[in-house]
């Protein structure tokens, strides 16, 4: 029989810390790979493409994608809970349609804006009713509300483009601070707010657990359904607020605009989940992902690519990075036992 008196497995401290250090290095690489790619891409572009050496191009790049960035950040609110809210882009357009239609017909923005926000909150509540209370798959339920809202936008605007936003709305989105329009500042502020909530509050931790294992979260005493309902309402409200920005940014509402904003935000959010806090939807990862996509697309367009390049680049970048994250994650979990 075995008479050895060595301690049971698990006391090999030196081996352990060596293994730890190694995972720390590869973990660090995973964390910053996307940001590193962004820095390298900008450096290469600046070295090879003359236009990249002008400040105005950078301002244009920052501004052009601010709406998508705002939508992508909004998308992470519900994505963190393991659900989808596909309806955000149409909520944004419907909210803009309400504001546009009312204010161009003489209603005060003080009435129109609260109405639009109420619409957003209602969309959130209806989504939550279907998904949280009744248990419909969130992808299907919010695809339904997305489609219904698309119809509603046409109804509100009588299928026409509503132009003529007042200066107040335009300034709300386009006034500049330090040469950067407000809409971009809103996106940056939202990044910080979401980062704080996600990383620094119990709510942010709970939301991950809810996304990870809803049963375990419920049994741990987390008010899962209330938090999920809250997330849908916040998602709807944020999207309605984006409607105000949208109307001011373009000065008009095209009821058919929702479609082009549907999937790009999700691509950016998923891409963002492969960086900073790897494997989780997070605010800094999302902004890094979006700027990486923007710089890449801008460079290709300067080099002569047409509009098709946007979707092609988004799609390929998403497929590549998510696959890379999956492989890295498998390697990380592989070291079991």
């Amino acid at each position: 029989m075995a008479t050895s008196t060595t301690a049971p497995a698990g006391s090999g401290t030196p081996e352990k810390s060596a293994a730890r250090r190694k995972t720390d290095v590869s973990g660090l690489f995973e964390k910053w790979a996307l940001v590193g790619a962004l820095v390298v891409l900008v450096a290469v572009c600046m070295a090879t493409i003359p236009q990249f050496r002008t400040a105005s191009l950078f301002t244009t790049m920052l501004n052009a994608q601010s709406l998508v960035l705002l939508l992508a950040l909004t998308a992470t609110v519900v994505l963190r809970m393991g659900d989808f809210d596909l309806s955000i882009s149409q909520t944004m357009v419907a909210s803009a349609a309400v504001i546009g239609q009312l204010t161009t017909n003489g209603t005060s923005p003080a009435v129109a804006i609260p109405l639009a926000l109420a619409l957003g909150a209602c969309v959130g509540l209806v989504n939550a009713l279907l998904v949280v209370r009744i248990g419909v798959d969130s992808f299907v339920a919010t695809l339904g509300s997305y489609t219904a809202l698309a119809g509603l936008s046409y109804l509100i605007t009588d299928s026409r483009i509503v132009a003529g936003a007042s200066d107040g709305f335009i300034n709300f989105s386009r006034s500049q601070i330090a040469g950067i329009p407000l809409i971009t500042w809103y996106a940056w502020i939202l990044v910080i707010v979401l980062w704080y909530v996600y990383q620094r509050t119990p709510l942010g931790r709970y939301s991950l657990f809810i996304g990870g294992n809803r049963n375990a979260a419920t049994l741990a005493g987390i008010p899962v359904n209330r938090i999920r309902t809250g997330a849908y309402v916040v998602s709807g409200l944020l999207a309605a607020f984006l409607g105000v920005c949208f109307f001011g940014y373009f000065g008009a509402v095209d009821p058919s605009a929702g479609g082009q904003y549907m999937l790009q935000p999700f691509a950016a959010a998923f891409l963002g989940s492969t960086a900073i806090t790897v494997g989780r939807f997070n605010a800094w990862g999302t902004i890094a992902a979006l700027y990486l996509l923007t710089v890449g697309i801008t460079a290709l367009q300067i080099l002569g690519a047409e509009t098709w390049v946007t979707n092609l680049f988004y799609g390929l970048a998403l497929m590549l990075s998510v696959a890379a994250a999956k492989i890295a994650g498998r390697r990380r979990a592989g070291g079991a036992k």
Partner: peptide, 29 residues
């Protein structure tokens, strides 16, 4: 698997779940 753990979550995230609100400095986790 069904009721107790979040498989993709780290050991520290899982084990500290019930006391997260207490693990704060100046209001932040």
């Amino acid at each position: 698997l069904r009721d107790g753990i979040w498989v993709a979550g780290s050991a520290e995230e899982n084990i500290t779940l019930p006391v997260v609100p207490q693990l704060r400095k100046r209001g932040s986790v």
